[in-house]
């Protein structure tokens, strides 16, 4: 009974050239089939770059080199051999052939402009933290109220106090030196950023909003300038 055989060599265009997939069969037959196919379409294929998907076949270096040379005689450039066999992949690499081709990407869908920000975790405290109160989190802390002496704020991220900061505050408690501490009146008992510790100088002037940050290994406080 005659059954129509699957073509043992199929070609299709990919982004970087032609991808040839080989079907079942012995290597010499396959090679001949491929070369015949190329010869037939010689005019069309002249100068083409060809990637060869050999499946799980193990092909020795001699065979692969021969194929490359014979394709080259036909003015076709073999530039890649794809295989699920690591031995074949290694052989191809030895011969200076690529073993991966970029798979064609699905056409890009145009996404809407990304104006929705995920944000980061923060604790919002809308009260004055009196002596003995403690806020501790790995995220940021925002206090709407004062932080009195004896209160503690410890944050993995930044600390923002919309009020008077007079207690102990530790920003970047997990070692983040880029963390900052902002307050309308920055006058903490002790201020820590990451591993650095600072104490407020005696202030006599009118309180102003300030931000404390690490600058060249030191904690500095400067006017809270939103434009920064």
């Amino acid at each position: 009974m005659f059954t129509e055989q699957k073509p043992i060599v199929s070609m299709k265009g990919v982004r970087d050239g032609l991808l040839v997939t080989l079907g079942e069969g012995e290597w010499p037959d396959i090679q001949e089939a491929l070369l015949n196919e190329v010869k037939e379409k010689r005019d069309f294929l002249k100068g083409a770059r060809l990637a060869l998907d050999v499946g799980n076949r193990v092909i020795c270096a001699a065979d692969m080199g021969t194929l490359r040379d014979r394709l080259s005689d036909l003015e076709v450039n073999l530039w890649a051999v794809l295989s699920s066999s690591t031995a074949t992949e290694q052989t191809a690499q030895t011969l200076g052939l690529a073993t991966r081709i970029t798979t064609p990407r699905p056409e890009r869908t145009v996404r809407p402009m990304d104006t929705h920000l995920e944000g980061e975790n923060a604790i919002f405290v809308q009260r004055t933290l009196r002596s003995g109160f403690k806020v501790e989190t790995r995220g940021h802390v925002v206090v709407l109220g004062d932080v009195n002496p004896g209160a503690e704020v410890i944050a993995g991220g930044n600390v923002i106090v919309w009020g008077r900061l007079r207690g102990m505050v530790h920003a970047g408690a997990e070692g983040d030196e880029s963390a900052v501490v902002c307050a309308l009146d920055l006058n903490p008992t002790q201020l820590r950023i990451a591993g650095l510790v600072a104490v407020s100088p005696q202030k006599t002037r009118k309180p102003r909003p300030e931000v404390a940050r690490v600058h060249e290994g030191q904690v500095i406080a400067e006017a809270w300038n939103i434009k920064d």
Binding site: R130, G132, P149, G150
Partner: peptide
Amino acid sequence: VRDADRIIGLVE
């Protein structure tokens, strides 16, 4: 005053 602050917090 420190202690008063603590107490006020506890009362709250």
